[in-house]
Nucleic acid binder design. Structure first.
Lengths: 154, 154
DNA sequence: CCGAAATACTCAGTGCGCTGACTATCTAGG
DNA sequence: CCTAGATAGTCAGCGCACTGAGTATTTCGG
């Protein structure tokens, strides 16, 4: 009987939080476009013409995953992908009119959903919520490259 | 230029939090056993002989996903799965000795990882962190079955 | 100019997570 | 007993997410 209490395990809580979010997203935002897909659209609204890798960096997806997400968005005609004439390795991405319209429509619903999702918390608690999660995520992300200790050049 | 700030979107933050956790888990706990798999082991340590559906309920996985996770654990010889003689629909689950040993080993490492993961927060903040995430998750989970309004029997 | 390193992307493989359709089994009503 | 409904599990299909290997292109050193 050495079982552990999972409700104090951040990983378990993070997974449950995502599931809860997924549930609400499906009912209140879209069953077609997923949350990561919306994040990609959103990035390309802000910075049209980005290459695939950079979009992945912005939304926090690795090269393989971002490739799949973009391929799906392309199949749906929400974005165009063209080879960079300056650098044949890159694919430059740009939303279509349909992609722009979709983003606008979903942005409204997303805002509504976030309100419902965060309704159990007071305004102050919501701020705390964001800050605590961000601090933990950023710190863990920082452990990824333990090198690069000082600013001493190289 | 109607782009949105994703850092105030709980869904986005939840995803990033899980990625950060996954990263730490892989380096500090195990590359073989995943966090959901550990959750299943942990549940069966506390309640041996549970059926598949109930285990899924305990750890928060749907019938399909829990089936796959259990199948993987079974292939690795960490648990046994036998048909319930009382009810032929059910599969009863029980850890093997190897499963028990694995759980014990990982439980220690998991505790260490949680400390590192939560190190950026003070003790009070950690409590807040758990509570806020739990409240949001529970509330969203509650929206799943909007029925069952009163305690009036049936 | 030419070969090596870096970079962007693709592909194969594994695993989590969900829905909807299906099968097997059990339970309850007539 | 026998059928209708509920319940446990399987299966197919989609999508996110990661790693490691491989390809194409660019860049940099000699």
């Amino acid at each position: 009987m050495a079982a552990v209490d999972l409700t104090t395990h951040p990983g378990h809580l993070a997974r449950r939080l995502q599931q809860a979010h997924h549930l609400l997203w499906n009912t209140m935002v879209s069953e077609e476009i997923t949350s990561p897909q919306f994040a990609v659209l959103n990035t390309l609204v802000a910075e049209p013409g980005l290459d695939q890798r950079t979009v992945g960096e912005r939304v926090g997806l690795d090269r393989s995953t971002i490739a799949e997400v973009i391929s799906r968005l392309g199949r749906r005609g929400l974005l165009d992908k063209v080879r960079d004439p300056q650098d044949g390795r890159r694919s430059l991405l740009r939303l279509t009119d349909d992609g722009l319209r979709t983003h606008r429509r979903l942005a409204v619903r997303t805002a509504r959903m976030n309100q419902v999702f965060l309704a159990p918390l007071s305004a102050a608690e919501q701020t705390q919520f964001f800050e605590l999660i961000r601090r933990v995520s950023d710190a863990a992300e920082g452990l990824r490259n333990p090198a690069e200790p000082l600013a001493g050049q190289t």
